[in-house]
Design a protein around this nucleic acid. Structure first.
Length: 877
RNA sequence: GCGGACGUGGUGGAAUGGUAGACACACGAGACUUAAAAUCUCGAGAUGGCAACAUCGUGCGGGUUCGAGUCCCGCCGUCCGCACCA
């Protein structure tokens, strides 16, 4: 008799209620048990979850449930990255308060996440906008300030004119704000920064230890930190050419070996020497202004010619007092790298050679290939304007001639370290980093207040610990741009904690990336009176598996690595004082979807069109007008392109298990998955199929707890082998996050059980029950609700989620007989079924006796026969 | 420009150097049905052949190996990251 369809939406609510009622996902710190901390990047509470969240959290949930079944004490928490601009924008647009907007969004999204059936410990929920969270962040800030890891500086900053705030270097992409897309301006402001550069070397070195991080992310961070080894060289200036008091110019170079190829010096328009010279030279001042106005976008840089302005200043070559070089202000020199000054060696630097050509400066090749004709070719190329960057030997370089560039580097360093200028060595070896300190001041309301007070007498005064948190005032106004804290009538006016005189609060708030730089630590003891609890953090950290999007490869992941070190420095990282917060990282791919446009070119939602046909014949029709619509490219799901599918709709229609299953199947988790209606429908069909197969199996299967029969026939053994092999493989594949492969194995086992229903044999009923139970337990992490439903149907009144992971019987993982392919000269000709224990000789004999092989040999005698036991025989003639 | 990844049927994708295409989607044929949906069974890389089978086949060209999707070298293509970093 046919059973009813499985009503996923209804049953899922039921099981979620059961889990909630028994509080099965609550986790306690318990050092007597092995732990596993599974974490997915927490969401920004935008108001709705999207398919990217569904994918991310499903992956984490499968792993968490699997680890739980394996006996680990699993920490799997969730929270909210709740400060940020959108809340303030909403406040401006809709006359609501950021706090109200945020908490309403959190409530809505929490309901959505709950409908996914995630095994989360909601008792550990944190929201970064809550004073109970940010009070600790302020504490951490003050401790970092005390250790000089946080400091205030006057600096040129990236100013986003649309968001009216400062951006960190990491948040400027192609010269535009990462959120607003507005062209970033340079402004000089006093602002707070974290001394991330204090850890440059350590952050770089430790990347090597992060073996369970994607190579790609480690490389991106390595490039971002950007270490280079070189020499700081101080050049004497010719006094009568210098308009101000400077007597020397310090430059950084990674190629001191090419010192004899120097033909000019170049300094940044903002270099002190340039400013001094510009003060007395109107034309130079104009040139510097022009450089500053120049855009920094990719397009601008490509167009920009290398140009310079001769300051008239002369520098003296460190190896030759009679050799004077002109000092230029040049538009391609960056003030914030090295010393903002270089020596130009046109022969071996592409920028320098372009500059030299434009400014008609000499070009002297000093490195060239050892042999002709390659040497002559390289030199000719240099004179055509192509810098020579490869290996070779030194030429035109006096005492360096004939040396390799590496040896020349050392020789120059050795000599210049001994030379003295104004009482100090002329040069010293120096390691330079591209990484800049992290500017964290934001001129916004909806962020963590920076807990300091500015006093006219005492200067910068930390807010005393007992006065924390510095709370955000609720009565702020959002009707005009700018910082609501700054224009608040009373909030910033306080008395100085030291001298009791009138003072003002810092009105900047922290970059929201600070909030997300330590939430993983807070999860280990979310109610602790201190930022973290030592016992809890020692037990739980590091995160054993972190899962999130590749877009955080640098920003969030680098900041967190720094912050965890800073927490260690300030005594907030527990007794083990680990430096790395995330032992393993997995970056999942995006959820992408086709895009649709109306004839008029407006984006259309998938629900606003209908599709028919297939392949090249596929046609879309706009439902509202009945007119043809255009099927566009496959893109990341986004509001702007309207190619969104609402998880709520899918869950309400097909069920959470179906959405989860679809997310896990098909695409490998690190690649993009294309959301298709057909794919989801397929997942839905599988869900129903499981329901039927389990029902059918139960009709044939032995009762629950039946004793294993003494005799098991071939059919029973085949079922057992299939089940245990799947068990072995699925476990390994979940562990390795190869969910798509694990899914395929579950399909296979369900097909096998299905096929066996029509068979009979000794003990098959018992084997089928065993297989069904194993199958349901493996299904559990992926389709947890259906898993519970089937578990009950199998006759149990326990919860599947509380069952230990079954163990595969090693004896069942290998077959008695194996199929061995037989090749002739590497070409497959036949196959052979032999006993597993057959010797090489036996296999070889049997292979050579095969009719097809005899035929393929055409009477030739085998020269060699390679037998790989249980795999392959290759007959070579 | 620098760095990296990837390239397998109609599609998504499997494959410790050892039978390429598991599994799924889409497709085709059949069964059930008044019919449809749902479900079930079967088929399927390409070419040739009624068939057994043969030949070709993992972007292209070489190489290593008894054996290469997998390793090495050189191209081509796609995607990603960084970028006037001295």
């Amino acid at each position: 008799m046919a059973i009813e369809r499985y009503n996923a939406p209804e049953r899922e609510k039921h099981w979620q209620g059961v889990w909630d009622g028994k509080d099965v996902f609550r986790t306690a710190t318990d050092p007597s048990r092995p732990k596993c901390y599974v974490l997915e990047m927490f969401p920004y509470p935008s108001g709705r979850i999207h398919m990217g969240h569904v994918r991310n959290y499903t992956m984490g949930d499968v792993l968490a449930r699997f680890k739980r079944a394996q006996g680990f004490n699993v920490l799997h928490p969730m929270g909210w990255d709740a400060f940020g601009m959108p809340a303030e924008n909403a406040a401006m647009e809709r006359k609501t308060h950021p706090k109200k907007w945020t908490y309403e969004n959190i409530a809505a999204m929490k309901t959505q996440l709950k409908s996914m059936g995630l095994s989360l410990d909601w008792s550990r929920e944190v929201a970064t906008c809550d004073p109970s969270y940010y009070v600790h962040q302020q504490r951490l800030f003050l401790d970092m300030y005390a250790k000089d890891l946080a400091y205030r500086r006057k600096a040129k900053v990236n100013w986003d004119p649309v968001d009216q705030t400062v951006l960190a270097n990491e948040q400027v992409i192609d010269g535009r704000g990462w959120r607003s897309g507005a062209l970033v301006e340079q402004r000089e402001l006093a602002q707070w920064a974290f001394r991330i550069t204090a850890y440059s070397q350590d952050l770089l070195d430790a990347l090597k230890t992060l073996e369970k991080w994607p190579e790609k992310v480690r490389l991106m961070q390595e490039n971002w930190i950007g270490r280079s080894e070189g020499l700081m060289v101080r050049w004497k200036l010719v006094p009568e050419t210098v308009p101000s008091g400077e007597t020397e110019l310090e430059i950084f170079t990674t190629r001191p070996d090419t010192l004899f190829g120097a033909s000019f010096m170049a300094i940044a328009p903002d270099h002190p020497l340039a400013r001094a010279a510009a003060a007395k030279n109107k034309a130079l001042a104009d040139f510097c202004d022009e450089c500053r106005r120049m855009g920094t976008s990719v397009a601008d840089l490509e167009k920009a010619e290398k140009r310079g302005f001769d300051t008239g200043i002369k520098a003296v070559h460190p190896f030759d007092p009679s050799w004077q070089l002109p000092v230029y202000v040049a538009n391609f020199i960056l003030m914030d790298y090295g010393t903002g000054a270089i020596f130009g060696c046109p022969g071996h630097d592409q920028r320098d050679i372009e500059f030299a050509k434009n400014m008609q400066l000499p070009i002297i090749p000093v490195v060239a290939p050892k042999e002709e004709p390659r040497r002559a070719q390289a030199i000719a190329k240099v004179h055509e304007g192509v810098a020579y960057l490869d290996e070779g030997e030194m030429i035109n370089s006096r005492f360096l001639d004939g040396l390799s560039p590496e040896a020349a580097f050392d020789e120059v360093a050795r000599r210049l370290e001994k030379e003295v200028l104004a009482g100090k060595p002329v040069a010293e070896r120096k390691v330079n980093f591209r990484l800049r300190d992290w500017g964290i001041s934001r001129q916004r309301y909806w962020g963590c207040p920076i807990p300091v007070i500015h006093c006219g007498t005492c200067g910068t005064v930390p807010v005393p610990a007992d006065q924390l948190p510095v709370m955000l005032p609720d009565d702020a106004t959002f009707d005009v741009p700018g910082n609501p804290l700054d224009r608040h009538p009373t909030w910033k006016h306080v008395d100085c904690p030291k001298c009791r005189q009138k003072a003002v609060r810092e009105t900047d708030t922290m970059d929201t990336f600070v909030d997300s730089s330590w939430y993983f630590a807070r999860f280990t003891a979310p109610d602790a009176k201190t930022p973290v609890d030592k016992t809890a953090i020692d037990y739980w950290m590091p995160v054993d598996q972190y899962i999130g999007g590749i877009e955080h490869a640098i920003l969030h992941l680098l900041y967190s690595r720094f912050f965890y070190r800073a927490m260690g420095e300030t005594g907030h990282a527990g007794g083990k004082n680990l430096r790395e917060p995330f032992a393993a990282l997995f970056t999942q791919g995006m959820v992408v979807h086709e895009t649709y446009k109306s004839e008029a070119g407006a984006w259309l939602l998938p629900t606003e069109i209908s599709l028919e046909g297939e392949g090249a014949e596929r046609r879309a029709t706009e439902l509202a007008t009945g007119k043809p619509a255009i099927i566009g490219s496959i893109e990341k799901m986004s509001k702007s392109k309207k190619n969104l599918v609402d998880p709520d709709d899918i869950i309400a229609h097909y069920g959470a298990d179906c959405a989860r299953w679809f997310m896990l199947s098909d695409s490998p988790p690190e690649r993009d998955v294309i959301w298709t209606e057909a794919g989801v429908a397929g997942a839905g069909r599988f869900m129903q199929r499981v329901w039927r197969v389990i029902d059918d199996v139960l009709e044939k299967a032995a009762p629950k707890g039946a004793k294993q029969p003494d005799v098991l026939g071939d059919e029973a053994m085949a079922v057992r082998r299939a089940a245990h092999k799947a068990l072995d493989q699925v476990g390994k594949n979940i562990e390795g996050l190869r969910f798509n492969v694990a899914v395929a194995q579950l399909y296979e086992l369900s097909n096998t059980m299905s096929a066996m229903l029509s068979k009979s044999g000794p003990g098959l009923d018992w084997a089928l029950r065993e297989a069904a139970e194993i199958f349901v337990q493996m299904l559990g992490p992926m389709m947890p609700h259906l898993g519970e439903e089937c578990w009950t149907r199998l006759g149990y009144n326990t919860l599947l989620v509380e069952q230990p992971w079954p163990k595969a019987d090693p004896a069942l993982l290998v077959d008695d007989t194996v199929v061995v392919a037989v090749q002739v000269n590497g070409k497959r000709r036949d196959e052979l079924t032999v006993s597993r224990s057959a010797t090489k000789d036996e296999v070889e004999k049997a292979a050579l006796a095969l009719d097809s092989i005899v035929k393929a040999l055409e009477g030739r005698a085998p020269k060699r026969v390679i037998v790989v036991p249980q795999r392959i025989v290759n007959v070579v003639v």
